[in-house]
Simulated assay, not measured.
Amino acid sequence: MFEISTKKKGIEFSVDNEIGYGFYVGHPYGITINAKAIIGNNVNIHKGVTIGQENRGKRKGTPCIGNNVWIGVNATIVGNVVIGNDVLIAPNTYINCDIPDHSIVFGNPCIVKHADDATKDYINHAV
Rank of each mutant, 00 (worst) to 15 (best):
N74A: 10
H27Y: 09
H27M: 12
K58I: 12
T62M: 10
A75V: 07
K47S: 02
Q53P: 04
K60A: 14
K60R: 15
P28I: 05
N41E: 14
Y21P: 10
T32D: 08
I65P: 09
V25T: 09
V82H: 15
K36R: 08
N68C: 10
N34R: 02
G26P: 07
N34W: 12
N68Y: 14
N68K: 03
I51A: 08
G61N: 14
I65W: 08
V69R: 00
G26M: 07
G84D: 09
K36A: 06
R56F: 13
N80S: 12
I39V: 15
G22K: 04
A75Y: 07
I31V: 06
G84K: 02
N42K: 04
K36T: 04
R59L: 14
V69L: 03
P28A: 11
G79D: 03
F23H: 02
V73C: 05
G52Q: 14
P28Y: 08
V25C: 08
T76L: 13
P63Q: 00
V49I: 12
V25K: 03
P28Q: 05
K58C: 11
R56K: 13
N80F: 09
I31K: 00
V43G: 02
I83M: 10
I77K: 01
K36M: 03
G40N: 07
I45K: 00
K47A: 04
F23V: 04
N74W: 09
I33N: 01
T32Y: 11
N68E: 08
P63G: 02
I77T: 05
V78G: 02
V69T: 03
I33T: 03
N55S: 13
N41H: 13
F23P: 02
A35C: 08
N67S: 08
H27G: 04
I33H: 05
V43R: 00
G40F: 13
I31H: 02
K60W: 06
N44M: 08
I65T: 02
K36Y: 06
P28N: 05
Y29Q: 15
K36D: 09
H46P: 01
I83D: 01
V73I: 11
V82E: 10
G57N: 14
R59H: 14
V49N: 00
V25E: 07
N41D: 10
R59V: 07
G48E: 06
P63R: 00
P63E: 00
G57K: 12
V49S: 07
G26S: 10
I45H: 04
V49R: 00
T32F: 10
Y29K: 15
V81M: 09
G52A: 13
E54F: 08
V81Y: 10
I51K: 00
